[in-house]
């Protein structure tokens, strides 16, 4: 057990190292595999995801978790599996193009999922390059397929996916796999270029005939639960037409307040005029009249002057 495990650890370590090296010296290889290690959805099934598990390096560097791990491993039998990727140019027959390797993790409740998916692509042969060029010229489809069941390939049927060949060339040939899985069954492969590929697709021969691959493994998501409110259901109007929220005094009565304000302002200005009038040194007898005139409005008062 220990030896097997350590050897697998070693392998992992090596492969990660290799992966890192290959990132730096990518040009010297015919192909380049770029495994996306930290994947969000990878453990999205029951029990929530354990972010640690996505990083194989973590488990290596944490000796205290041996007990937990061994109990984990006691129930599951991790095994390495491989499944092929095949491709076709236009309507040609499918031919092997590479292989995926992954670990099959058996959960204690019986479910099986794939983890640590990595992909290695075969280099393109000369005829394949020629074929690919033809596809580029004709703006035709480059097609790939994988088995629908990874344990007993090809399963019921192959999963086919295709892309217009002109979408792939960038510097090299950029491709992006998103593999949707349900247990050990592959449901679908979303295959395409990582970037955009707008319609009048330009004819472009890649500088390098090597694939730069990104792979993402995706498991199903759980639907959000319906919120359950135990209280306040009665309190609610139950009709969605909630009682209008209590509005402020101003919001409620503005239509009365504005005319009122106008009247008050009007009265004040008149009162001010009235105050001015005695200041002008008018005889006291006229003051009486001015008070009466205040109601008549300002214009009248002004005119009188």
């Amino acid at each position: 057990m220990r030896t097997r495990y350590s050897s697998s650890l070693k392998f992992l370590f090596l492969s990660i190292l290799l992966g890192n090296i290959s990132l730096f010296i990518s040009n010297s290889f015919a192909f380049q595999s770029d495994e996306l290690l930290a994947d969000d959805e990878e453990f999205g099934i029951e029990g929530g995801r354990s972010p640690d598990a996505a990083f194989p390096t973590r488990t290596v560097s944490s000796p205290p978790s041996i007990r937990k791990r061994s109990s984990d491993l006691g129930s599951d039998l991790d095994s390495k599996i491989q499944f092929p990727l095949e491709h076709a140019f236009g309507d040609s027959d499918f031919a092997p193009a590479g292989s995926f390797s992954a670990r099959l993790k058996t959960w204690s409740h019986g479910g099986q999922t794939l983890t640590k998916l990595r992909f290695s692509r075969n280099g393109l042969s000369e005829t394949e390059k020629e074929n690919f060029k033809k596809l580029l010229e004709g703006d035709d489809f480059y097609r790939i397929r994988v088995p629908s069941n990874v344990l007993s390939p090809p399963g019921r049927e192959y999963i086919i996916s295709s892309v217009k060949a002109r979408c792939l060339p960038r510097d090299g040939l950029d491709e992006h796999f998103m593999i949707h899985m349900e247990g050990v069954n592959i449901l679908a492969v979303n295959y395409g270029s990582p970037g955009s590929c707008p319609y009048p697709r330009q004819f472009k021969i890649p500088a390098k005939w090597s694939f730069k691959s990104h792979t993402v493994l995706k498991n199903s998501e759980q639907a959000p639960r319906t919120p359950v409110f135990t209280e306040e259901v009665v309190g609610e109007n139950a009709e969605g037409e909630l009682p209008p929220p209590e509005r402020s005094f101003w919001a409620k009565y503005w239509m009365y307040l504005i005319p009122l304000g106008l009247i008050v302002m009007n009265a004040i200005t008149q009162a001010m005029n009235m105050a001015e009038e005695p200041g002008n040194g008018q005889p006291g007898a006229q003051t009486q009249q001015a008070v009466a005139g205040a109601q008549r409005g300002q214009t009248a008062a002004v005119r009188r002057r």
Binding site: R156, E157, Y158, I159, I160, S162, G183, N185
Partner: peptide, 14 residues
């Protein structure tokens, strides 16, 4: 016509 893509649902679960 030709096939461009396929989605295969596992018969035992969906």
């Amino acid at each position: 016509t030709r096939d461009l893509w396929s989605i295969v649902l596992p018969l035992e679960s969906e």
